[in-house]
């Protein structure tokens, strides 16, 4: 059997195992984000949003926040999936099953990232489905919509992987979401347009990578964005290359995994 066929089988195995894990614990992986986002839609979209009026032209506040909330669900679930799954494998030592196998590092990384991306996208579809109970959406640019959600999920899967590799205890995988991911998400234009901000906050917001993901996705769905969409894709692809390269380097060196 050729090396590429063997690698493909190994990749399928890692992805299959990750998807089985997501389905096995679906009450922890798929239901909670759906409940949380429903609450956001009810409270921010319906109750408060109805008093805000239109935003960025002719969109209701509910329509404005849906892309942001879908993207928020995608990135937090992609991140959460890979950190808990990979750190769990490290903690339970069954990551060794893969480390002692002939599977190349890139196959292992791709498998975990694809698994986390699947979870992020599955949650994204669920949240979008729930959103349609509250408002109507007409996707303006399907390719940009698809590209932005996939890139957003991949970026945060890679970031979660790095977090899991360096984590030594369960607290370590909670630190980044609590102190970095959540603030950046809330300040990333999910609930507001950065054009509503004064300086220097508007300029400072542009240093937040999540702003580009949210706005690329919002452009795909609604056709509006606070930032240049082409530039958003450059930023996202840049992050994929940077985080992917670092993850691979860490994995090849065995940092945090091999003594």
């Amino acid at each position: 059997m050729s090396q590429s066929s063997a690698n493909l089988i190994a990749l399928k195995t890692v992805v299959h195992r990750e998807i089985m894990r997501i389905l096995r614990i679906w009450t922890q992986t798929l239901i909670p984000p759906a409940i949380t986002m429903t609450l956001y839609f009810v409270i921010f979209g319906t109750l408060i949003g109805s008093r805000i009026g239109s935003i960025s032209g002719h969109f209701t506040y509910m329509q404005f926040i849906v892309p942001g909330l879908v993207m928020m669900a995608i990135i937090t679930n992609s991140y959460g999936n890979i950190t808990s799954s990979f750190f769990g494998a490290k903690f339970g030592r069954y990551v060794e099953e893969m480390l002692v196998s002939p599977m190349p590092a890139w196959v292992m990384l791709t498998g975990y990232v694809l698994g986390a991306t699947v979870r992020g996208l599955a949650v994204g579809v669920i949240v979008l489905g729930i959103a349609l109970f509250f408002t109507s959406l007409d996707i303006q640019h399907p390719l940009i919509t698809a590209g932005s959600v996939v890139l957003g999920a991949v970026i945060f899967s890679l970031a979660g992987f790095i977090n899991a590799v360096f984590a030594k205890k369960f607290d370590d995988i909670a630190l980044v979401p609590t102190f970095i991911l959540t603030p950046l998400t809330y300040l990333g234009g999910v609930f507001y347009s950065i054009n509503m901000l004064g300086e220097p906050w508007r300029t400072l917001s542009k240093a937040n990578p999540i702003l580009y993901m949210v706005n690329a996705f919002r452009y795909g769905v609604l056709g509006i964005s606070d930032v240049n969409v082409a530039w958003s894709f450059v930023v996202m692809i840049g992050f994929v290359v940077l985080l992917g390269g670092f993850s691979l380097w860490v994995l090849k060196r065995g940092i945090g995994l091999r003594s």
Binding site: V14, E97, S101, P102, M103
Partner: peptide
């Protein structure tokens, strides 16, 4: 799964 990691169909 173990066999899969070794590329076994």
């Amino acid at each position: 799964n173990e066999a899969g990691f070794y590329g076994i169909p």
